[in-house]
Computed example of a mutant assay.
Amino acid sequence: MAFTADWLALREPADLAARDSTLLTRAAECVASGKVVLDLGSGTGSTLRAFEAHGFTGLSWRLFDNDPGLLDVAGKRHPGAERVTGDLGDLGALPLGGVGLVTASALLDLMPLDWVTDLAARLDTAGIPFYAALNYDGIMHWEPVLPTDTDVTTHFNMHQRGDKGIGAALGPSSGETCRRVFGERGFDVTTADSPWIIDPDRAPLHEALLQGIAGAADEAGCAVATDWCAARIGALHDSRGVIGHTDLLAIPRGTSA
C-alpha cells in the first residue's frame, strides 16, 4: 500500500466535502481532556486537517504511517503533532498509550478481515473509540451513463478485494463488515454515507481516478477498461461521477464517550 503526496493532496478536498460532519463531530467529542488522537495510515495528516476544518483545533495528534516521507510532509505542516513510523500490519505494536480516539481515513477497504477483527479486540480491551471515514463501498456511477460502466465497476471491485500487502482486502464490503465486527465486540456502531461527488470542476481528480480505476479493472481481466477510460476522459468536462464511501464510528459500550 503506497500512496504519493500528490495523490493525497489531489483527493483531499473531495474527502473533506464527503465526510459525514455529524459522525466527525461525535468522534471529536469522544476525546477526553489530555488524551491523544491516534491516526492510522495518516499520510500527510488529512484526517487532522479535516477535524480542524470542522473547528476541532485543540486536539493532540499521533500520526502513524509506514511511509516516513509522508510523515515528513505531515511534520512540516503540523509541527506540533507526534509522528510515528510503523507497520500497520503489526497491530501489537500500535502506540495506544494515552490514546482517547483512533482514527483512519480511506483505510478499512484495504485491510483484511483478521486485521479488523484484531483491531476491534485491542480497542475493546483498551476502551478506545474508533472513527474510520471514507471506506469505499463498491458503488460507482456516472452521468451520462456508458454501457461499459457496470463491467468496469465489477472488475474494479474484484481488484479491490485483492491482497494489498497483508492479506485479502475487504474492499467494498469493508463498511458493513466492520460494523458487524465492532458490534460483536460490544461497540455501539453508527455508519453514514460519505460519497465523493465529482463534478466537472474537479477534472484533475476525476482524470487521475479514471486512470486508476481502469488500470485496476484491466488487471482484474476487464477487456473494455482501456476504451472505457478513454471515453470517460474524453467527456471529462461534461460528466459527473459518484464514488460511494461509508464513514463509521464505533464507541465501546459503557464508556463516557
Results as ranks from 00 to 15, higher is better:
T103L: 06
I139C: 02
G58W: 02
M140F: 14
T153W: 09
R49P: 06
D151N: 06
L110F: 11
P129E: 01
M158S: 12
T103D: 07
F64S: 04
L146W: 12
F51S: 04
I128G: 00
H155N: 10
G86D: 08
F156P: 02
R62T: 14
V73R: 10
D124V: 00
G92M: 09
L134N: 02
G89K: 06
D137Y: 02
L63D: 02
L38K: 11
V102W: 00
Y136V: 03
S33V: 08
P95Q: 10
L59P: 00
H155L: 13
L38P: 08
I128H: 01
L88F: 04
V99S: 00
G58L: 02
T117E: 09
L40A: 02
G43S: 13
S42H: 07
S33C: 05
D137P: 01
A93Y: 07
V37Y: 03
V116Y: 03
N66I: 09
M158K: 14
L88S: 03
T125I: 07
F56A: 05
H141M: 11
L38S: 10
A120C: 07
H54M: 14
K35V: 01
S60C: 09
L38R: 10
A120F: 03
R49C: 06
T117A: 06
D87N: 14
N66A: 14
F56Q: 04
Y136I: 05
T125D: 04
L107C: 10
H78R: 05
G100L: 05
P68C: 11
N135F: 06
W115P: 05
G45L: 06
G75M: 13
